[in-house]
Simulated scan of single mutants.
Amino acid sequence: MKKLELKFLNEENKTVTISLDNPIEPVDAVKINHAMDTILAQNCFLSSGGDLVSKKQARIVERNVSEIEL
């Protein structure tokens, strides 16, 4: 499963991550950048360390799970 992680810094300079399942690929960096700007401008998410104040990173994370028979 792939996830799009949007990482922001809050008022305490701590990282806050918003994860979205099954992102559209190929990734459109311009749209992601715009979405992150909108999240900051709307101030629509709360964190324990205060408001989100800046963008830190965006990335695609893929997790593979292999069952081990016992």
Score class of each variant (00 low, 15 high):
39 I>R: 00
55 K>E: 13
21 D>Y: 11
49 G>R: 01
19 S>R: 15
25 E>T: 14
31 K>T: 03
3 K>W: 12
29 A>T: 07
39 I>D: 00
26 P>Q: 03
20 L>Q: 13
15 T>E: 14
29 A>P: 07
41 A>Y: 01
47 S>H: 01
13 N>M: 11
61 V>D: 03
47 S>F: 00
60 I>R: 01
67 E>K: 10
58 A>R: 12
41 A>K: 08
55 K>I: 12
42 Q>V: 00
62 E>C: 06
6 L>Y: 01
62 E>Y: 10
63 R>T: 14
62 E>V: 05
55 K>F: 11
21 D>L: 13
59 R>F: 08
7 K>T: 13
19 S>F: 11
9 L>Y: 15
43 N>R: 03
2 K>W: 03
41 A>R: 05
54 S>F: 11
57 Q>S: 15
27 V>Q: 06
60 I>G: 06
42 Q>D: 03
51 D>W: 08
40 L>I: 04
30 V>E: 10
28 D>K: 12
40 L>F: 02
58 A>T: 10
29 A>N: 08
8 F>C: 07
8 F>D: 03
60 I>P: 02
28 D>A: 04
54 S>R: 15
44 C>V: 00
65 V>H: 05
18 I>W: 13
64 N>F: 14
66 S>N: 09
52 L>G: 08
28 D>E: 04
33 N>S: 15
11 E>Q: 13
42 Q>K: 04
15 T>I: 10
63 R>D: 14
34 H>P: 00
10 N>A: 07
40 L>H: 04
54 S>Q: 14
39 I>F: 00
65 V>T: 12
15 T>P: 04
34 H>T: 11
57 Q>C: 12
41 A>P: 00
41 A>I: 00
57 Q>E: 15
66 S>L: 05
46 L>V: 01
35 A>Q: 08
49 G>T: 07
46 L>F: 04
18 I>G: 05
15 T>Q: 14
19 S>W: 10
22 N>C: 03
39 I>H: 01
5 E>L: 15
61 V>I: 15
51 D>G: 06
63 R>K: 14
58 A>P: 09
58 A>Q: 13
42 Q>M: 02
15 T>L: 14
37 D>P: 10
58 A>I: 09
49 G>H: 03
46 L>P: 00
52 L>W: 08
2 K>I: 04
19 S>Q: 15
4 L>S: 09
45 F>M: 02
4 L>G: 08
31 K>H: 02
33 N>H: 12
37 D>K: 08
4 L>Q: 08
54 S>E: 11
41 A>Q: 10
